[in-house]
């Protein structure tokens, strides 16, 4: 286990390094800069001053080393979009908001998806199956921002049950969580159904059945457990996205989360923020991935941690 963790750590550091270099180069390759030339170009002197002020006149290598050096010491700089706070402060302010909505969406989506998927598989080719498949299709075919817009029109404008958006009360959670949960729920249901059907046909389930185990025992001990493997593979990468927020949902429901910064940082050429977001997602992702790998060994003892490393 210790050897495995050490290996992972080295891997993660390698990944961090490559990701940071790639993003750093890409973001500096975008034409223009963070200065404001919205109406008329700045004077050369003003632009030069601006670049000097933020160290943007230095060679890229130097800028990179400086930023990463500061980042290692916990200083992620000041966001150009919000110069009265630090990048860390901004993330500390907005991320919990996104994480709470994403986390709740996951808590809703997973059990519901598992339930629907299991039901559909158990009642294959009946109306239960068709109904869940239809719901799943809806979740994957209609973009969540379209669903979000209709939720607002229905529950806020027509029925007046909920506010159109905002933040601070429990009512503000309902629609964003629902809109956000639909897709992962659909995905979970679909993969659960597929995996269960597949595992049910496998040799060892047949063996188990031959051994005289009850359907229920088979379902829990063999089928569900094995069905979890592909599900983990599919769902795990969704988690970092879900808990770091999405601009589509947050902008429609006026949720003051982190999601919009994934887009506005690029639009505003907010270099410190782009780098910080990238590092944040990388950290979240590596944690999720680590947990997933460990979970693999739990649900499928035949996969041992060393295996995935060597």
């Amino acid at each position: 286990m210790a050897r495995y963790l050490f290996g992972r750590l080295v891997g993660v550091l390698v990944v961090f390094f490559i990701v940071s270099v790639v993003i750093f180069l890409l973001m500096h390759a975008i034409p223009g800069g963070p200065y404001n030339e919205d109406k008329v170009p700045l004077s050369a002197e003003a632009k030069a001053n601006y670049m000097r002020k933020y160290g943007l006149d230095r060679p890229l290598v130097e800028q990179y080393l400086l930023y990463m050096g500061n980042a290692l010491r916990g200083d992620f700089g000041v966001p150009f979009q919000s110069p009265t706070e630090t990048v860390s402060g901004l993330i500390a302010r907005t991320w919990p908001v996104s994480a709470s909505i994403g986390g709740l969406a996951l808590l809703v989506a997973l059990p519901l998806g598992l339930l629907l998927g299991t039901l559909a598989a158990a009642r294959q080719n009946t109306w239960v199956d068709y109904l869940t498949s239809a719901t799943a299709t809806l979740g994957i075919t209609v973009p969540n921002f379209v669903i979000a817009v209709w939720l607002v029109l229905l529950f806020a404008v027509q029925l007046k049950w909920l506010p159109t958006g905002g933040w601070g009360q429990w009512q503000h959670y309902v629609m964003p969580v629902a809109a956000l949960a639909l897709a992962p729920m659909a995905l979970t249901a679909r993969y659960t159904r597929t995996s269960i059907l597949e595992v049910s046909r496998s040799d060892y389930v047949r063996t188990a059945r031959a051994k005289g185990l009850s359907d229920r025992q088979i379902m829990v001990r063999h089928v569900l457990r094995n069905a979890m493997i592909p599900l983990l593979t599919i769902l795990a990468p969704q988690i970092p996205n879900l808990i770091t927020g999405t601009i589509f949902i947050e902008s429609i429901f006026r949720v003051p989360g982190l999601g919009k910064f994934f887009v506005t940082s690029i639009l505003a050429r907010d270099y410190p923020m782009i780098m910080a977001l990238m590092l944040l997602v990388a950290v979240v992702w590596s944690l999720v991935y680590l947990v997933t790998d460990i979970l693999y060994t739990v649900v499928d003892p035949r996969v041992r941690l060393e295996k995935s490393r060597t």
Partner: peptide, 18 residues
């Protein structure tokens, strides 16, 4: 002064008296 992210949401928020 409240933040409205999407211009398309201005009218619904107005209709809901927000």
């Amino acid at each position: 002064v409240v933040a409205i992210g999407q211009p398309s949401q201005l009218l619904p928020a107005y209709e809901a008296n927000e």
